[in-house]
Design a protein around this nucleic acid. Structure first.
Lengths: 143, 143
DNA sequence: ATTATTAATGCGAACGATTTGCGTTTGCAT
DNA sequence: ATGCAAACGCAAATCGTTCGCATTAATAAT
């Protein structure tokens, strides 16, 4: 059973139909290691021969987020929403405000803090969002 | 010289005119200790007798952000932009995903991490964005 | 104080991202 | 193979935000 079959099963387990569009989105997202927006997904699939309406992309992404296959991401320097394959765990990014380079950080400095915060506030802490903004070496020179 | 006069001076120092609308926005924001969106500002001012067009609210906020009086904030669970008075320093919030309660955290767990990251990546780190999501005690029971 | 200058405002239209309504197509249980 | 509900395509609607342009008002010049 290959990896795409896993996703088929996840869809079926949640009572969702397995469609070429949904699988197309998943396999497209597999090719990116950074979050992409709905429009790029739409165009990427079209180029791959799977033409799909933009509203269908949104609806499919919504379903995929619901079953946990995809994760929604919202950066504060951009109004639109980004999506990435949910590979377990979570990531944070360092954004260059000059050239929009995006560096994925492999550490999360918040696990201890989050535990302490939960204890202090009695909240059940579920997730967090951390993005760091600055200028990359090249852009520091350019400016 | 009262507090509003300080803001008048800041505007003038930056070559911006002192208008009732801009001062209205500032004094309205003073009344909130959490970030609010443009629409709420518009309606709040209207209720206070200072009727102001929504596009003017956006333009005024833009100016106030430029001169450092106001800060733009972007949460990952909401597409729209929020604004708050820039009281110096920065803040992070704990969001209840059940009732949308917002708790302002008085600590930032990232200062050391940010320094280390800058060193490691050679980025000039300018700012960051951190929000924590979970369920408040009441919503844990409700659910 | 009056007038001239030009930034700030109001209004409506435009915008980009996202959602929705509805008729058509397709996956899948029978 | 057939029927039904879920998914889809399409166009229109929505939401937050921005823009163009004519009008108003804050400040500088007289």
């Amino acid at each position: 059973m290959n990896e795409i079959d896993e996703y088929k099963d996840i869809l079926r387990e949640h009572g969702l139909r397995v469609t070429s569009k949904r699988l197309g989105i998943v396999s497209l997202l597999k090719g990116f290691d950074y979050p992409v927006d709905a429009k790029l997904i739409c165009e990427g699939l079209c180029d791959a021969g799977i033409c799909i309406n933009l509203s269908t992309v949104y609806r499919a992404l919504e379903s995929l987020v619901e079953v946990g296959v995809v994760r929604r991401i919202n950066f504060s320097d951009d109004a639109k929403v980004f999506y990435e394959l949910n590979r377990g765990g979570h990531r944070h990014f360092l954004h260059c405000m000059g050239c929009d380079e995006l560096i994925s950080l492999d550490v999360c400095p918040l696990s201890d803090f989050q535990l302490a915060l939960a204890k202090e506030t009695k909240y059940r802490v579920v997730s967090h969002n951390l993005d760091i903004y600055g200028y990359c070496p090249k852009c520091q020179v350019r400016k």
